[in-house]
């Protein structure tokens, strides 16, 4: 009986392939999330998953640890609100304008940060992000300073959908953008560009000696990750309506690193897993205790010391001998009586 099922599973696996199977898993997750956690939290998860996906381009595929991505996320959120207030009235114009503007900023910041690598890179990205935080905090009249700012109330119909007022409609929009980004990243990382990026991650020196313009590749990756972070931030502002400067603070920059690691650095499906686990965990935590920093810190320490490969890595290790390759075939072999 078990053997028959295992054989059947294996034949399905062989035909569909691991990559496609994980894509199907993502689709299934997207379908059941609103039923599991409600449309609002599900939307929050998808927004963060887009953010993590963007962040993963520079950390997971480029191999550089940025500690300042809250800047692009937060500016995406502030940008869409300010654009709606002062420039255009359509949300669907405001979002692309914001994404383009923030991407341009990430091009500038990326250029500066990529003057150095490693720990320096992390510190510079952090310092630049804090600069953005300080400026937004100080420009009281425009940004509301420490009080924050609310998105202007508009209907923003999109065909039959009204994402501004209906949470489930917003969820549908966010999912569409998530899938779009997902497919785009899947194609990018398997393109020649993506391969060079991964080569740089493995050994920058080797890529350099092979004649690749390493800095330009990383620069482009940085800009891409800035663009996706801005998109996620813009969606966040639409979902939450009210935003405050804490969106630009280093805490969020740390949270996105954590989500990336929980899901597995440099994987395609990891960001979604990381966002689900983190948002569920942090929502539960803030409803239980006001001292969430303690638990947040303890969880980070725990993950770093016990499960540095993330949850997927932990799972692989628990089930398989070989921790490097996820081999469903071998898993099935072991399940076979």
């Amino acid at each position: 009986m078990i053997a028959a099922i295992a054989t059947r599973v294996q034949s399905v696996y062989d035909r569909v392939g691991e990559r496609n199977l994980s894509y199907l898993g993502v689709l299934a997750l997207l379908a059941i999330l609103p039923d599991l956690m409600g449309a609002f939290i599900a939307s929050h998860i998808i927004v963060m998953a887009i953010f993590v996906m963007g962040y993963n381009i520079i950390l997971g595929f480029g191999g550089e640890l940025s500690f300042g991505h809250a800047a692009y996320f937060g500016l995406g959120a502030y940008g869409v609100i300010l654009t709606l207030e002062h420039l255009v009235s359509s949300l669907y114009l405001a979002i692309p304008i914001t994404v383009v503007a923030v991407t341009l900023l990430s091009v500038v910041f990326g250029y500066l940060s990529l003057r150095r690598r490693g720990i320096y890179f992390a510190m510079i990205t952090l310092a630049l992000a804090q600069l953005v935080y300080a400026i937004v905090f100080q420009m009281n009249e425009l940004t509301g300073g420490s009080n924050g700012i609310a998105i202007p109330a508009t209907e923003a119909p999109l065909g039959p959908l009204t994402p501004m007022s209906n949470e489930l409609h917003f969820y549908a929009l966010a999912c569409a953008l998530f899938l779009l980004s997902f497919v785009a990243i899947a194609r990018i990382v398997n393109s020649p560009f993506g391969r060079v990026l991964k080569a740089i991650r493995e050994s920058e020196e080797r890529a350099l000696h092979l004649g690749y313009d390493v800095n330009s590749y990383l620069w482009l990756a940085f800009a891409m990750s800035g663009a996706l972070s801005a998109l996620a931030g813009a969606l966040y502002a639409v979902l939450f309506v009210f935003i405050s400067p804490s969106l630009l603070f280093w805490q969020l920059s740390g949270e996105v690193v954590l989500m990336t690691i929980i899901g597995g650095v440099g994987t395609l499906t990891g960001p979604l897993v990381g966002a689900i686990v983190f948002i569920f965990f942090s929502n539960t935590l803030t409803s239980i205790t006001e001292h969430w920093e303690i638990f947040f810190g303890a969880v980070i320490i725990g993950i770093v010391l016990l499960a540095p490969e993330g949850l997927i890595g932990l799972l692989r290790k628990a089930v398989l001998d070989d921790e490097k390759v996820f081999d469903l075939k071998r898993l099935i072999e072991r399940l076979r009586p």
Binding site: L65, I119, V257, L258, G297
Partner: peptide, 18 residues
């Protein structure tokens, strides 16, 4: 370096919480 940075970030949060 990545995980060390993250570890000290976790310590920072924990200590501020305490």
């Amino acid at each position: 370096a990545l995980l060390q940075l993250l570890l000290t970030f976790g310590i920072a949060e924990l200590i501020r919480g305490l």
